[in-house]
Design a protein around this nucleic acid. Sequence first.
DNA 1: CCGTGATTTGACATTAATGTCTCATGTGAT
DNA 2: ATCACATGAGACATTAATGTCAAATCACGG
Lengths: 184, 184
Amino acid sequence: MAAKQPGTRQAITEAGFRLLSRNPGANLEQIALAAGVTRATLHRYYPSRAKLIAALALTAIREMDEAVERASAGATTVAQSLRDSLFALIPLGDRHGFLAHEDIQAEPEVEAAFERMRAEMLDWMEAAQTEGLFDPSLPASWCVRSFDYLLYAAWESVRSEELTAKQAAQMAWRTLAQGLGDTS
Amino acid sequence: MAAKQPGTRQAITEAGFRLLSRNPGANLEQIALAAGVTRATLHRYYPSRAKLIAALALTAIREMDEAVERASAGATTVAQSLRDSLFALIPLGDRHGFLAHEDIQAEPEVEAAFERMRAEMLDWMEAAQTEGLFDPSLPASWCVRSFDYLLYAAWESVRSEELTAKQAAQMAWRTLAQGLGDTS
DNA sequence: CCGTGATTTGACATTAATGTCTCATGTGAT
DNA sequence: ATCACATGAGACATTAATGTCAAATCACGG
C-alpha cells in the first residue's frame, strides 16, 4: 500500500490520542506501531514529537468545539445545550484525556486555543447559573472543573467497561445538575 | 550541611510528589534539584527511577490511608466519616495526583496496595448507599469515581489559587453529596 | 508491461536520560 | 584533632528515545 495520505495521517492521529491519553510518555515507536506504520513514516507526517503533540492538541480542541457546536444547535436552553454537549463529548474522551494529561505550554497557537476554550466554558457556566440550572452562589470556576472532571470520570467508566456511553453520560449529568443545582 | 538522613529523604519525597503529580515525565535531575540535592544523592536513596516511583506510591497510599483513618476516628456515621476524610485528603492532593498520573503497574506490592485501597473505597460507597447518603440505585463504581475526581478537582482549585482548601473541600462535598443523593 | 513519483522502510546518527563510580568536602560526634 | 558519615561534584558507560537518510517498494498512468 502506497500513495495514500489521508488514511495514514488519520491512523496516526487516532493512535496518538489513544495511547497518549492513557500514557503521556508513550514513545513514537508505540504510536507508529499502533497506527500500523513505522516510526520513520510518522516522522514524515510530523517532523518532531513536539509538532505531533501540537497538531493533536489543535485537532482535539477543534473536534471538541465542533461536537459542542453540533450538539448545541437544536437546544433552546442552556441546560439542554450543556446536557447534549456532555453526551456528545463522551466519545471524544481520548481527546479530552490527551489535553488533560499532556503538557501543552509549547506552541503559543495551541496555548491560545486552549485559553479560548476555557473562557467559553466559563461564560457557559455563568449562563447556566443565570438560567437557574446551577446555584448562582457557586464560583463559576468550580462549575467548570466539575463539568470537566465528571466528564472525564464518565469516559473512564466507559473505557473500563463499567458503564455504557449512554449510562455514563446520564450519571455524569445527574451528578453535575443535581450537585451544582440550587438546594431544593 | 552534611550528616543528615531524615531531612534529605523527606525532601526528595516531597519534591517527587510535587513535580511528578504535575508532570509524570519529570526527570531525576529536576527532582533532585527541587529537593536541594544532586542527582547522585538521589540515587543513593533510590537506586533507580522505578524504585523511587514505587517508594513514592507506597508512601502516598500509606499517608492517604492514615489520613482517612484519623479523620474517620471520631465519626459516628458514614456520611460524617466520608466528609471528614474528604477534608483531610485535600492537603494530600499531590499524592493523589501522583497516583492518578503515574503508571503503577510495576511492583506487585504497589499493585496490591492500590487494589486494596480501591476495594475499601467501593465498600465504603456501598455503606454510604445503605445509610441513605447516596442513591442506592447508582452503581457504587460511579460513586467511587465521582469521589475520586471531585477530590482531584478540589485540589486543582486550591493549587491554582481559585479557592482555599476549606472552600474547595466544601464545594466538592456539596457537589458529591447533593449530586449522588436521592432525588429529594 | 513499464516508467514515474510518492511513500515506506530499515539502518544510521544524534541527543537526552539514566545508572555507576571515584574523590573531594564539610559536618557532627568522640 | 580526628574519625565517621553523608553529600557534592564530576567523569564515564549504558540505554532509550529521537531525528535523518538513501534505497526499496508500491500504486498509478501511459
